[in-house]
Write a protein that binds this DNA or RNA. Structure first.
Lengths: 207, 207, 207, 207
DNA sequence: GGCTAAGCGAGACGGTACGTCCCGTCTTAGG
DNA sequence: CCTAAGACGGGACGTACCGTCTCGCTTAGCC
């Protein structure tokens, strides 16, 4: 548990004092969402969030240590569903679907938010740590399971480096998201996933 | 030519008045370098650069439109050599070497600088545009040539999407540079390049 | 009765519900005293009093309308004895003693507290009103009685302006307390009182 | 020279850099004056001064260390003339006039400003020090000269404590200014000065 | 060699946002 | 009802940089 998520600790024992206002929390997250869309991550200020949410800055600082923490919380809740793939009989097929889902996610409005967070993480160690812990780790654990299913099914060699395998699948996606050297368009969404799976297959077979 | 590189315009007509001080330019670039290493991109301020360089802020603003432009200029000069690969008889072999060079570059001190710039580019369109124009475009043009050589040699199908091909090779690198979910260590430097080439080969053969 | 002393209203009818905690009242007054000594009036906050007293802010606000009211209450209780002079046969002698007592009071630890209150009163009408009503009015009534005794004894003319007379005696004291242009030292404590009485005598005789 | 008056140092050598804007200085002092009249010293904020003056807070903080320093500067310039008395043949007469001038000053709009400053000085050592150094010291030096003239003329004994003498004259004034227990009205303005002089005379003769 | 025009340092300036502090009010639970 | 705890809206604090500006002083090439 790191600093960016302390507020999400839920102690079972009800703490004394006036309880945190859930309404207030929502207003802040909504305001953050709106400003994120309008101004982008680094151009939006905490003062603006407070202004728009109609809360005081102190209330924000009481619960979130930074702008990134707010955005992360908003993102986290909303992204879970986007990438969940119901396991099918073919692990390979599932991986293909996961790649497709990731492309769809990156192309949608959350794509820029994710890119912003990763961008900020380059100069703020806490944001990076939080992003890895809260978003990447569970995400990659899920992918790892799918790959391990494929290994058990004999599709992939048990000797493969699973981290490397995941990177083969998703690296080009992140690259396009972040570098924007080429569009993440319909052609990419159609053509890339099978290429990625093919690349993984050749790596994982001949290991 | 975009805003981040206006200063490099060299008018052939000799302007009147005192000429730009080259000494001053160097002091600023050096100061930027030092602060970049010490504080990181977004924590370093233009005021600090001016302070350290012993120049005035006005002088900086006269020649560079932003912090990123300064850093970009410093980076550009220093990176050229790192990635140049003398063409050999085997285009595939050259690509392999280029991947290796990129890993070495990313692992070195310039890695964090590049990551910082890409990070900032997420929220500053000008930086992004400049990075793509000045760094990525020439870089990818070079890679494209190597791939076209391979196509002409019959190694790769002429139907491949060259952008996608390049992404297959370098995507996982940028991913590790920017997400830092897994180390870019000796094992990676040793294992990844051949895997990348194999992936490209399978894509480019079966296209 | 003004706002700063509402809490001293004592309804004869026993109110329903939990009675006010006397312990709590003492803890707050003690904490106020301690912080007053440590930080001075305007640097001490109500939050700090609550923290130190181990009470909640709400409890303080329920009983006192302001910081000054707390301090006033603490001061009032403690100062009564300092200035009471048992009437002797000579009203003039009594006045002399009262001046001496005031100097002693101002030189002691309560001197700075009184100065702080008068200082705050310059920008807070309520504090000023409360200070005058609760402290100055009874104090000056007492002095007035002593002077009237002297008038009845024929020492002073019955035509004198008693307020002016009191000011002649105490003005220089307050001036030194508040301006601190010159020390209120042993020499002053020894030399000033007879001078003051002499000044009063010459005014009150030749009126 | 203390911290509250550093800005008034006038180096003969013109300093480098953009010169201080006199216009800006005036706008700030005027804004301070207006707010002082409208809201009183402690209710006026530096933010409000900046807002009204149309300057930035940084500009204020660059030149004045505190609210009090601003007010002091505004006061200082405006008060000089109010208390200057052209020496006449009678030193005693001059003292009488000086007392009258002080009463007039205290009754006017500057009276509340002076009271505010003295009030703040009770909890801010720097303000007190500045007030004493910049206002009281020159003021009392002037009074001291008048008294010394009277001593040389044989009116007063050479043994008197001049500080005490000044306090006898002005103490009651400050007391009424600060305690407001009795009005500083026409009657006081008419009656007090001769009483004060008489008191001083009896002290200074029988010393 | 003096003129002129830009470069340059220094640093003031209007702004904006920062993160903190305390205010006085409120909303809980528990005594 | 009283109290402890502490969340809340509000607003000022003093600081840090931003990018622009106004000065006086170089420092060249050109007349």
């Amino acid at each position: 548990m790191n600093a960016l998520s302390d507020h999400s600790v839920e102690s079972p024992a009800r703490p004394s004092g006036r309880p945190r206002s859930e309404d207030c929390r929502q207003k802040i997250l909504n305001a953050a969402d709106e400003l994120l869309a309008r101004d982008g991550f680094s151009r939006m200020s905490i003062e603006a969030i407070a202004r728009l949410a109609g809360t005081s800055k102190a209330t924000i600082y009481r619960w979130w240590p930074s702008k990134a923490a707010i955005v992360m919380e908003a993102l986290l809740a909303a992204t879970e569903a986007d990438v969940f793939v119901k396991p099918s009989s073919s692990a390979e097929e599932d991986l293909l679907e996961k790649v497709r889902r990731a492309i769809a996610l990156f192309r949608g409005p959350k794509g820029r938010v994710i890119a912003s967070l990763i961008g900020q993480a380059q100069s703020d160690r806490e944001i990076g740590e939080a992003y890895r812990t809260q978003i990447l780790v569970p995400r990659r654990a899920d992918l790892r399971q799918a790959i391990e299913r494929a290994i058990r099914a004999g599709t992939f060699s048990p000797d493969i480096d699973i981290d490397l395998a995941i990177d083969l699948l998703f690296g080009p996606l992140y690259q396009r998201l972040l570098l924007r050297h080429a569009p993440m368009d319909d052609a990419f969404e159609r053509d890339y996933p099978p290429v990625a799976i093919a690349a993984l297959r050749v790596y994982a077979a001949n290991c």
